[in-house]
Design a protein around this nucleic acid. Sequence first.
DNA 1: CCCCAGTCCTGCGGGC
DNA 2: TGCCCGCAGGACTGGG
Length: 294
Amino acid sequence: MPELPEVETMRRGMLPIVGSTIKDVRRPPCAKRPILIQPRIDVLRRRVKGRTITSVDRVGKRVVVRVDSGDAIIFEPRMTGLVLLAAPPTSEHLRLQVTLSGGAHRELLFWDRRGLGLVRLVSPTEFETLYGLAKLGPDALSLSAEQMRDCLRKSRREIKVALLDQRALAGVGNLYASELLHMAGVHPQKRCDLLRPAEWQRVHAAMIEVLETAIRYEGSTLSDGTYRNALNEQGGYQNHHRVYDRAGEVCPSCGKVEIVRIVQAQRATFFCARCQRRSHQPATAKNRKSLHRA
DNA sequence: CCCCAGTCCTGCGGGC
DNA sequence: TGCCCGCAGGACTGGG
């Protein structure tokens, strides 16, 4: 499931298309139910055909491809969507094909096995309404520890659930929420309003560290193998997960078999019952060390 | 404001 | 061995 590191990796892989011109936009025949494309494909085609791509950005978990009219094509991968410059994993789930000219790549593809993703073309005004700060919080990599604490400290929600709320901060998803709380040594069920300033500092530092490291490894390709970068290559961070999908295994911090799985807001959470206590306690020496290495 | 359950969807793995 | 059910969860929606 693409979260910030995976979407950032997709974005970086897309950079070679800046300067290319869009020749056409097609919706390949798909046996299954088509994904949502807004506006209708013929309207989309009229607005982007002949336009030059000026930038490839990211907002939270979405890739933003801007063209010289000011419009932006937003790719929202959700669970299984991929933005590709190479051949997709299968031809079956190809959802959108953008043909290009004037650059090294001939086409940009949106592939999505489960079809929960969406592609939309938005004007600058629509972009602000749909993806501005009123709708989506500041990017997880750009907000400060103070901003993070200010926007969450009064909430009575559990910290792990609050981290998934894209209106508070954008980019953290289910996998990295468990990972960063483990590095911070904070219990996922601890209420935000009960976190101490030192814990907010650790959560913020761990968030930056985990996300940046995951970006260096080009994201996590889970056992279903779905996530790929723009060239259809796997990520590497799945080999460095501390707790995610490791229930019953040894905790990398304390070395004991203490990793457990619980469910919060209908989603799996993994944590170490020994290193992440509900009550206040200082970070373990090992956690502190790994944070300072950041 | 907050929370919860339901919705979309496909592939896979556990259990029988 | 084969089949079926349930699970995976990002974002959104409607009801409490």
